[in-house]
Each structure stands twice: as structure tokens, then as C-alpha cells.
Design a protein around this nucleic acid. Structure first.
Lengths: 146, 146
DNA sequence: GGCCTTTCATTCAACGTTGAACCAATAACA
DNA sequence: TGTTATTGGTTCAACGTTGAATGAAAGGCC
């Protein structure tokens, strides 16, 4: 009784559920065969462009290298990403977006649009913005104290 | 550039990371062999006591019936939970906590304590409480619009 | 130069989850 | 009543993830 009624536990519980629901909604909206992880990588390249090593991508997405190897292989199989060896450093690879990858990103974005609009109709930008500092602080703390 | 800077997307991104970190921290703190899902079920019974059907547990934890079958089987294997057929309704089963289950819960709670105290040292109850209404609203909305 | 350490990427088994198929038991209804 | 629909639980393949092991390449240091 003391446990779940504490606000910190409640916050983490709600966050867990929201994360699950949001991820499920994302994967349901996305075109067949594109996972949330794959869409995240495409988004990364659309924003930043250029090339990135698998290790940096894994760090950016808070995911193990093994997991990133997996999603990059799936992206490459679909032709959404190009992976070449880094001739300057034999350990590294350089990943970059293909034209097909950019198109896949756009398609995913379109498929996502109705759901995102629904969300923005239910809550204001101000509400999201107001919640953000605390969430960021919480994320940073959990990241530093893992 | 327009996408990830929007507060709604940022909120969901932060929530996803927090969820992952919090779940990982939970499983790392818990005694060997006890998953977050299992601990959640134990917590449920410690709070509410009595008996519950697998279907109700699945609904309470927002999880498929198959997933709940899995965690209940693992709990039963460890002797933390008792599962009997419901003689009043041949489809149902009745799940209840064992003494060993109660002890396992207490052990998990103890193992969790230092981390929870660290969290409550870094943020105040008021901060968690302030964030809660928005998170609950968001959870309810995503639940209704899935 | 040689040795130790670190970094990068891959592979593999294990886990928890989903979604679908399935069967048994009950409920609803003609 | 008999038939159909719904509910409860299990099983299975597939997915994404972790964590650990492996190997190759580069860096640090004497």
C-alpha cells in the first residue's frame, strides 16, 4: 500500500505504460516491416545527414552495439542504408542514408501524421513543454546513476 | 529538424529512454532470476491480496494473455505463486501468493531500497507529484486512442 | 619494437513481449 | 434446445533487446 501510492513509483509506472503504448502505436502506424528502431535511425540521418559509425548510433539511441548491428542489417537489407568500411580506421564502418531510405522516412512520417495530430489535438504544446524539464532531469539522473 | 524539436516528440523520446533505464535498473537491483514483470505481479498481490485470474492480471498490467501465462509459469516454478483451477468456471484459474512469494517480494523490496532512496534524494516528492497529472492524462489518452 | 589495453563490430543464447491460432468452457439467443 | 458468439488460457513463431564472448584493429607505453 505504501509502495505504489508514492509519487515516484507512480511516475515510473505511468512512464512505463506510456512508453509501451507509444511504441506499439508507432509500430502499428509505420509501414509494414519498419520497426520503431529502424525509423529512429532514419530520422537521425534525416536530421543530421552525412555518415555515422554504428557505435555512435548505438550510443545516441542508448542501445547496445549488438542491437544496433541488428537494426542496421535490417535497414541495409531493405536498401535504406549504405554501410561501407572506414578505410582510415579498419575497426569502423560508415553508415549513410540512401535515396530509398529517405523515401522510406517520408512514407513513415506520412503514416504517422494522423496519430500525431490526434495527440497534438488532445494536449497543447505548452503542456508538453512544461513536462519536459522534469523528464529530462529524470532521464539524465537515471543515466548517470545506472 | 522540425520533428525532434517538437515538445510532444521530445516528451515521448524522453519517456522511452526513462522507461528503458528504469526497467534495466530495476532488473539489475532485483535478486537473480526475478524479472520486473514478476516483481510487478508479486507487488500486486501484496497490495491487494486474495486471488486473481490470469486474464485480470494481464489487463491490470496492460500485457497480452500470453505474456502473463509466461510470467505466471515462471513464478509458479519458483514457488512464489499458487495456481488452481476455478471450479465455478472451468475456463478460469485462480492465482494467489504463497509464503515464499511474500518473502521474495520483501527481498526484492530490500534490494531496491538503495536505488529508490537515491532517486528520492535527487528529486522531491512534490516534483514527482507535479508531473503525475500530465503523465496520467497522457497515459489515459494513449490507452483510449490506440 | 613489443606488449597490454581499448575500441569497434559481430555473433549467439536468453529473455520478455506481441499477435495469431487454437481449444475448452460458458453465455447469449433463436 | 441447439447453435453461435464470447471468454479464458495456452502455445508458437517472430521481434527487439541485453549481456557476454569473440576477433580484428588501433592506441599507449616502456
Amino acid at each position: 500500500m505504501a509502495l505504489k501510492d508514492r509519487p515516484d513509483v507512480s511516475v515510473l509506472t505511468e512512464i512505463g505504460i506510456i512508453s509501451q503504448l507509444s511504441n506499439a502505436a508507432l509500430e502499428r502506424s509505420l509501414p509494414e516491416g519498419m520497426s520503431a528502431a529502424q525509423f529512429g535511425v532514419l530520422t537521425h540521418f534525416m536530421r543530421r545527414g552525412g555518415e555515422e559509425s554504428p557505435a555512435k548510433l548505438a550510443a545516441a539511441f542508448q542501445v547496445t552495439k549488438g542491437a544496433m548491428t541488428n537494426t542496421l542489417q535490417r535497414l541495409e537489407t531493405q536498401g535504406f542504408v549504405r554501410v561501407v568500411a572506414d578505410e582510415a580506421d579498419g575497426r569502423k564502418k560508415r553508415v549513410s542514408l540512401t535515396e530509398a531510405g529517405a523515401r522510406a522516412y517520408e512514407a513513415g512520417l506520412m503514416a504517422l501524421r494522423p496519430r500525431m495530430e490526434g495527440l497534438r489535438g488532445a494536449f497543447t504544446d505548452a503542456e508538453f513543454a512544461a513536462a519536459l524539464p522534469f523528464l529530462q532531469g529524470l532521464r539524465v539522473w537515471m543515466d548517470e546513476n545506472r
